[in-house]
């Protein structure tokens, strides 16, 4: 530990701006009668998502002399859905989320997330509401919208929904990613590589841009679209080379959700990743009945970076991981 790093990584002036943004966000939701909630940071289960790594710890104390394994949550999604199933109605939360293995100019292993859920909304109604929040906080013009297919095709001239893995490999090689592409066996990895490196820089430069209808294979916790089963009710918001938010028309089907968790763990087993216990309380809540709803998670630190014109995430948080 270096004692020299005692001082904050963000300026006090930036922290004041940050506080003002948090206040405006809370007022936005109070005015719309969305209930503020708090859910556990430590939970007995975690996400099975193969690309997320949780921190874990052990509680030792009354009732748990032998130790209770707990995970720091990568997002408050599961607990918030249990509240929705219990009849909470529209809810929002501003909280810390924790992700191991992530650090960089846009990542800190501990970060602040705004997550909210709207029963009765589909992903398009939620995009509308989010757009209003962006205009309020960033003073930007209304966002543009593109389907994943449109954004990909426009930037790279290939239809991501019909392209074969061979075509994607060829395209990735042509774009300078031969080392990764040659041995890649997952179509989604190639899509993510090309989308991150080549599509994102072409969208949302002037005003925020929603990309919706992500491929069904990257649905995560979103419903598959009825009109086209190749895509899911999942959207992302991009602005100035920053991925700001991820939203879903939420999957409410308990058995489909359990199936996806099991598939994740099967992939983990094949690829030498740790098994993650499935959140059976979430599954039970879905069985009890999750109202049809849309939900979205937004990275507050990145939002503050955009609002204050800062290049690095450490410039907007009091103490980044190097100083924590």
């Amino acid at each position: 530990m270096s004692a020299d790093l005692w001082a904050p990584s963000a300026s006090i002036e930036t922290l004041k701006q940050r506080a003002a943004i948090l206040r405006r966000i809370r007022e936005f939701f109070y005015a719309r009668d969305v209930l503020e909630v708090e859910t556990p940071s430590l939970s007995a289960a975690s996400v099975t998502d193969v690309h997320l790594a949780s921190f874990n710890t052990t509680f030792v104390g009354p009732g748990h002399a032998g130790g209770l394994p707990l995970f720091l949550q990568t997002s408050p999604e599961f607990a918030m859905k249990r509240l929705l199933a219990a009849g909470s109605g529209a809810i929002f939360q501003l909280c810390k989320a924790f992700r191991n293995e992530e650090a960089g100019s846009h990542h800190n292993p501990e970060f602040t997330m705004l997550e909210w859920y709207r029963p009765g909304f589909d992903e398009f109604a939620l995009m509308d509401e989010m757009d209003e929040l962006m205009q309020l906080v960033l003073g930007v013009e209304p966002a543009t919208r593109l389907t994943y297919q449109q954004a990909f095709e426009k930037a790279l001239g290939l239809d991501p929904l019909t392209a074969s893995i061979e075509q994607l490999k060829q395209l990735a090689c042509k774009q300078g990613f031969a080392d990764i592409a040659q041995n890649e066996t997952h179509k989604d990895t190639l899509l993510q590589l090309l989308f991150c490196m080549k599509v994102e820089p072409t969208i949302g430069q002037e005003k925020p841009c929603f990309v919706y209808h992500f491929p069904a294979s990257q649905a995560a916790l979103a419903q598959i679209c009825e009109h086209d089963t190749r895509v899911a009710g999942r959207f992302e918001l991009y602005y100035k080379n920053m991925e700001l938010a991820n939203g879903f028309n939420e999957l409410t089907n308990a058995s489909e959700q359990a199936k996806r968790f099991n598939e994740d763990n099967a992939y983990r087993a094949e690829n030498g990743l740790k098994q993650v216990p499935m959140d059976t309380r979430l599954i039970k809540a879905l069985e009890h009945g999750l109202p049809q709803c849309a939900g979205v998670a937004l990275g507050i630190d990145r939002l503050v970076m955009l609002a204050t014109n800062k290049e690095k995430i450490k410039d907007v948080i009091a103490f980044d991981v190097q100083r924590a």
């Binding site: 690309h51 650090a103 993510q192 490196m197």
Partner: peptide
Amino acid sequence: NEMVKPGKGQAFNR
């Protein structure tokens, strides 16, 4: 060295 990672998906190092 910069980590690039989508919220849902594979991480890369640029």
